[in-house]
Design a protein around this nucleic acid. Sequence first.
DNA 1: CTGAAAGCGCTAACAT
DNA 2: ATGTTAGCGCTTTCAG
Lengths: 340, 340
Amino acid sequence: MTRNSGRPASLADVARLARVSVPTAPRVITRSARVSEDKVERVEAAIIALGYRPNGAARALVSGIQNIVVVLASNTTYYGYAATIRGIEEAARAAEHLVMIVVIESEDEAHVRDAVRLALSQPVAGVIVLKSDRAGVALPATIPVAVASGSPDETHAQALIDEFAGGRATTEYLLTLGHRTVHHVSVPPSGVGEDERTRGSRAALVSADTDAPPVIPASWDPGSGRRIGSAIARRADMTGTLCGNDEIAMGIVRGLTDEGVDVPGKVSVVGFDDHPLAGLWRPGLTTVNQDFPALGRRAYMLLTEVMAGRQEPDSTREPTRLIVRESAAPPSPRGRRHLP
Amino acid sequence: MTRNSGRPASLADVARLARVSVPTAPRVITRSARVSEDKVERVEAAIIALGYRPNGAARALVSGIQNIVVVLASNTTYYGYAATIRGIEEAARAAEHLVMIVVIESEDEAHVRDAVRLALSQPVAGVIVLKSDRAGVALPATIPVAVASGSPDETHAQALIDEFAGGRATTEYLLTLGHRTVHHVSVPPSGVGEDERTRGSRAALVSADTDAPPVIPASWDPGSGRRIGSAIARRADMTGTLCGNDEIAMGIVRGLTDEGVDVPGKVSVVGFDDHPLAGLWRPGLTTVNQDFPALGRRAYMLLTEVMAGRQEPDSTREPTRLIVRESAAPPSPRGRRHLP
DNA sequence: CTGAAAGCGCTAACAT
DNA sequence: ATGTTAGCGCTTTCAG
């Protein structure tokens, strides 16, 4: 019962206390071979007495099995990221893999490199990079990598959500409702250039032979949506708005409402993500449902394929679903100039 | 350039190819000692040629360093949990510790035990249990543990948010506004018995010599708040409502609004958490701000104290702050029976 | 500056 | 059924 020293108890300690040889102890633990009754009891007692727990590092070393999956993420509190990580964890746990989270918040290459190196000092089976394009840089070429979300990337296996289709479907929906064009308020792009949502939206506009207005950039903060909403309240030309995510959409609805502009009476707003609160919003937010946990599970599956040595860097696209609620409607026929 | 076999390249392989001894290779890698120019070059070339990366298991084994902090959580997607985990990760990373997430979703004791055992087979320095009281059961007594949130617990170091004070402050605020009493719609309690928010609320009612109405239980799903909101729309006695969290509060506002009951004109609703969307809600949600990242950082600090061998199971309480927005107001003088 | 040797904790193979 | 031996890949002495 007394903790003899700082060093945790090893199998050798257990064996000594139980008066058996070292290999006998694991035979008791894993029941991998028959051991006489009395020794089983002695070993079990010793394990409890010493608080023995197996040393995963030693095990991984001798067996060659590495069972940690590192998730490199830039932000873990936004709903989409948290839900994706949740999906990864679920799939990993089912396969007896463990999930280690490393948040890459710094732009500083050296910090990223340090964080990655620290993580890779563990028995790491593979890495899932969550959207952050910066993180990939610091990874050695030999470690199995899968990317979840982010901009398409030829060099790695990648689990994507078909955001292009989502952007197109929502834009087409707004056009079908009768809006002349669709304005896109985007969240910060993850890589260089435009994100897929924006591209999908523009593709729909081009197909409909409509002019594509310039993208309005928002930050990740929902409050930025509110400010944009207030600002656009007086622009008679903006009747149909597609937002980079639901939080921004909620902010825009709020900003418009602050200025007395009715949604969807005067302006239609469509979100992206199907946030858990989207249906509760007033008006219920028309948005694009994405199955983030499925994305996470898929990323893990791709990673297992890479670990197994499949050559092709595969890529998958989870489907999206337009969720029609109340925040989008046909444009007001009499124009929408309106004073509070 | 050719990968000779399935087995990844080891230091021995690198050393052989570079025609140096095994210990020289790591000297080059970590620059821990001076190595002659030509050998440095040969080793570096060999590392690249073989795609060598250090074996974390061996490293962890030989160095004996345990630098993983396991977070046991029941749900990682709710804002409060995600933000707390974020705080833990931040503090841990600053101390060169890694964070491993284990989600405990099963009620099944055996599953929990397996998941915990798997995690503890890694070089684990300590465990932070996030609110789930069930998880603690499976932990060996020898491993350092700190608890974040949850019901007060004498046996472990514990970082808490002063939810009691939050529950009391909001209730007092509603009473001050003139409400006869305050109804509490609670989220599922984490342990046995009532949570601190409920207790704080009741304490305020008792102090004010007011009768405490029975608690109305909600689930974690915001939709349950909406159903409750609809259901209570016709109850003339419920003018002041305190909710277990903001999502439920938003649901209740929505349910009341669905039935044509004005908030805060007819019913005041107060939330808990200061969710990022609380201020954007219509009406802006009066709520209790909690600093979840600070809670996480504090939990990590407590864990380091436990690891360092401090005896007293300490406990800390982060302060809360009443955030007054628009969802609570004095009760309507003419009663609030109202038909849509 | 460099190499030889030992050992971390565990398991697989081989003897008994 | 049980003990003995060897070795996983790495780092840490210790010699030279």
